[in-house]
């Protein structure tokens, strides 16, 4: 009986100590972590709007400052989008959907004339490293820059992700990632849905 009591007390005490340590750290750094997360998303939007060189790493405070000064959010909920305050540049729309393993989210930038994409960037993805996760690599993303937005085809797709090496110049097509067919298909669906929302806006 005494042994059982000792076991319970020891376990409870150690749990309290470890719990307090971990929660204390979270509490102390929570604000900083939150700012980092927001800044990571804002940095991607800034890059698409041409307000930050691609791939440059800025401290969270600098990103937040530049975003607040130069970017304007318009619309509510699903219609939320970002524009530059000076009126130039593309309109940046968030998109999100289910990938092969987990949620994929990011931003797509529609050129001012609404006829082509200015770029695509991913802020959230947990696809297979080395395969699906390569959607974040520059060579894949660069394919969307200046890509013409086509009329919806039979499946409602305005842009298509086609087997690597089979894209035709001038067509709204980008090369898929070999070995990651499911991720490529998911990305195609998610981007087309996002594009549909963006083009439906007045």
């Amino acid at each position: 009986m005494k042994e059982a009591l000792r076991t319970i007390l020891f376990t409870a005490l150690l749990t309290a100590v470890c719990g307090a340590a971990v929660s204390g750290l979270q509490l102390a750094l929570g604000e900083r972590i939150g700012l980092n997360r927001t800044a990571a998303r804002q940095a991607v939007a800034l890059e698409l709007l041409g307000l930050k060189p691609q791939g440059e790493i800025w401290p969270a405070a600098r990103t937040a400052e530049a975003f607040a000064a130069q970017v304007e959010a318009q619309g509510e909920g699903e219609r939320m989008r970002y524009r530059r305050r000076d009126g130039a540049g593309p309109v940046v729309w968030p998109f999100a959907g289910q990938g092969f393993w987990d949620r994929i989210a990011g931003y797509l930038a529609v050129a001012p004339d609404g006829q082509s994409l200015a770029g695509v960037a991913f802020t959230e993805q947990l696809e297979t490293p080395g395969l699906g996760a390569r959607i974040e690599e520059p060579w894949f993303r660069r394919q969307f820059e200046g890509l013409r937005i086509g009329a919806p085809d039979a499946a409602g797709r305005r842009i298509r992700i086609v087997p690597a090496g089979s894209k035709r110049p001038g067509e709204p097509e980008v090369d898929a990632i070999t070995g990651a067919s499911e991720t490529s298909r998911s990305v195609e669906k998610i981007i087309n849905e996002g594009l549909g929302r963006a083009l439906a806006a007045p």
Partner: peptide, 12 residues
């Protein structure tokens, strides 16, 4: 969890 928290805060 300590490692994860420190990374999130200082090396996002």
């Amino acid at each position: 969890i300590v490692i994860q928290t420190l990374l999130d805060a200082f090396a996002p």
